[in-house]
């Protein structure tokens, strides 16, 4: 099981990968993660690879990911080539406009990007930022997206293991909020589950 998580620095991507990786360990599998964080503390591209099973190297090969969990629209598009032919993408529709776009040097064309993602993979779009806000904090966007993946039934993980892993990896004062966010994310995609099985 190879999951690529992508987004922008500061969105909680590394924590999401920890939660998932540890959940696989709870279920008796080996897991590894690989992070590419780059230069800036915030605002740069962040990618984390989560691999459950017996792979030796931390990075998922291009064309090898079972699931793409994207925290930001254009970052999701950027990593589409990592997906397997029959892989899934769960894409947060939230946008973080880069400075190059504000300066007018590059175009952030929402329609074009969305179309590209839909045409090139089995994608599900959700407004995870809004769901996280409704649960109490935009910071919970990572647990919303994990919930969404769980709701789709593509993680090969039980809900219990994920919650147990959240308990280990999230600070006590934020735990309830995040468990709530996880369930909301799950609800958002559960109904799409049947549809995915057909695809």
């Amino acid at each position: 099981m190879d999951i690529l998580i992508t987004g922008v620095g500061g969105q909680g991507i590394i924590l999401a990968s920890k939660i998932l990786a540890y959940a696989y360990v709870i279920e008796g599998r080996n897991a590894r993660t690989g992070e590419t964080i780059g230069m800036s503390q915030r605002g740069g591209c962040v990618v984390s690879h989560v691999r459950a099973g017996n792979a030796h190297s931390p990075y998922i090969p291009v064309g090898g990911a079972d699931l793409l969990l994207s925290f930001e629209l254009c970052e999701g598009a950027r990593r589409i080539p990592y997906l397997k032919k029959d892989g899934f993408a769960i894409v947060n529709t939230a946008m973080i406009i880069p400075v190059s776009t504000a300066l007018g040097k590059s175009d952030y064309d929402v329609e074009k990007i969305t179309k590209y993602i839909s045409e090139n993979t089995n994608a599900i779009f959700i407004d995870a930022d809004r769901i996280a806000q409704e649960c109490g904090s935009f910071r919970a966007v990572n647990t919303v997206l994990i919930g969404a993946a769980c709701g789709l039934g593509v993680l090969e993980l039980s809900t219990d293991s994920i919650i147990q892993s959240m308990k280990k990896n999230i600070r006590a004062q934020y735990l309830d909020l995040n468990i709530n966010a996880f369930h909301s994310g799950m609800k958002a995609t559960e109904e799409m589950r049947e549809k995915c099985k057909i695809m």
């Binding site: 922008v8 780059g38 230069m39 800036s40 503390q41 915030r42 605002g43 740069g44 591209c45 291009v62 064309g63 254009c74 970052e75 598009a77 950027r78 589409i80 080539p81 997906l83 032919k85 406009i97 880069p98 400075v99 190059s100 776009t101 040097k105 590059s106 175009d107 952030y108 074009k112 990007i113 590209y116 090139n120 993979t121």
Partner: peptide, 18 residues
């Protein structure tokens, strides 16, 4: 035979001061 997916032009996201 890696079947490459097409890529499109996307906005650059260079590191910036916060």
């Amino acid at each position: 035979s890696i079947e490459n997916k097409p890529v499109i032009d996307l906005p650059q996201r260079s590191p910036v001061l916060c």
